[in-house]
Amino acid sequence: MANQIAANFAIAGGEAAARATAEHIRQFWNSRMIAAMGDTSGLDPIAAAAFAQLRIDG
């Protein structure tokens, strides 16, 4: 799911795509789902960056 979201924002390019992906997940995902993602290093780099950002923001 996260990869799919990232793929749709990828056109915005690197950092902007990660920001948009993070914002989308923040808007629509329950925080427990975000927490349950665990290790995100196997994800698409944009999705992984998005989760990194979500964790920094708390």
């Binding site: 629509f28 329950n30 925080s31």
Partner: peptide
């Protein structure tokens, strides 16, 4: 304040 679960979730 936290969005809830969707049906598939």
């Amino acid at each position: 304040p936290d969005p809830g679960l969707r049906i598939p979730d």
